[in-house]
Design a binder for these strands. Sequence first.
DNA 1: TTGTCGGCCGATCGCCGACAA
DNA 2: TTGTCGGCGATCGGCCGACAA
Lengths: 228, 228
Amino acid sequence: IDPQLWHACAGSMVQIPPLNSMVFYFPQGHAEHAFGPVNFPSSTTPILPLILCRVASLKFLADSETDEVYAKIRLVPLPGSELDFEDNSLSLNSVGSDTESEKPASFAKTLTQSDANNGGGFSVPRYCAETIFPRLDYSADPPVQTVVAKDVHGETWKFRHIYRGTPRRHLLTTGWSTFVNQKKLVAGDSIVFLRAQNGDLCVGIRRAKKGIGSGNDSPSSGWSSNHG
Amino acid sequence: IDPQLWHACAGSMVQIPPLNSMVFYFPQGHAEHAFGPVNFPSSTTPILPLILCRVASLKFLADSETDEVYAKIRLVPLPGSELDFEDNSLSLNSVGSDTESEKPASFAKTLTQSDANNGGGFSVPRYCAETIFPRLDYSADPPVQTVVAKDVHGETWKFRHIYRGTPRRHLLTTGWSTFVNQKKLVAGDSIVFLRAQNGDLCVGIRRAKKGIGSGNDSPSSGWSSNHG
DNA sequence: TTGTCGGCCGATCGCCGACAA
DNA sequence: TTGTCGGCGATCGGCCGACAA
């Protein structure tokens, strides 16, 4: 999937090393994060606490059912891993992924009860509506438009975007409940809007972490950067 | 699952050989009925057209999603298969499954458009209501009761059974559409009601065979036999 | 600025008897 | 006896502004 949408969904806490960069692989940490038991192939050499590797390939993917994003990273161990890493450790990732591509405008919001309730619509924060959404014709009464957004699978979703109420606020009405039901969203999940470089509006999902307080929110810092 | 409910769902065309009886296994026919390609283990002996076997085990099962019933039959080949079967072939299954257990009252009906439409209810054939369902108190006006039926998984379903209209007829109303939606029934599928020996009412499903005209119907002969 | 609430209007669900096959 | 239809009443979805945090 589109790396920019991928990063917007993953959030700014997730950093992926660039292709061909060098990283340390921690077998123990990998095993602890895995869901099932991990069996490293028995070999003649003992398992090292960390292994210097090269990022051989990189794939940005999204689960076909939940839309949750993940990455496949192929690591190739480098010979002579027992280097004196005291000097190198800090410089290994010096070419951070920050400079590799532009950061399109994106916005994340955690769904409130009112957003997720089958009561109807989605309350759009003003910043998101004005910065990410297509320009609205405020001369109409009320100002209304249909916004079309692509999800991580390239599927398009239509929403009625209206600016109404006293005081005025931006809302998504028609089309929103269908989206909530199809994606099985609940209060606490987050939705990500992103304006791609070609102008297309994209929409992603960040499921609430079960049992853990939700993470960072709102203008996802670093990936919705044209905020003041 | 309960063998009686299993047989009622499978229909009278399906006959299962008793445990420990002798049957012929046809590898070619088995392969032709399988969905995928079948690879018989290569051995030194060529594959015979038919192999005399003993029914070593027998399991009556139902698909957890579609409720469709199927059986797992374990066959153990008998030595000396090259017997002169001209004499024996007819007597092998002489002890048919007919006598092995009683046949409880059951009834099958193919769903009409009106039954499957989300218009509401299910038109209960009089014979089914009077023979399979619990006795209805006709002194009430209108006569109404709640019937509870167990599906192949043991899950219970409640239906409002009412006798009304001019002319009078039996109907299932409240609870029926839920059942249709959950089981994803469409016009042409069949529903089977069965009164178990302990008095419990059971309900099964027979999906319409795609592309083939539906099979036998109504008092499924042989398995809803106390019909006149 | 925006989360929640009650009001309310229209669409759908589903129960009903009237027919007719 | 029972399949299909139109009617219609109850329920629900979902759009709305009024508040208040």
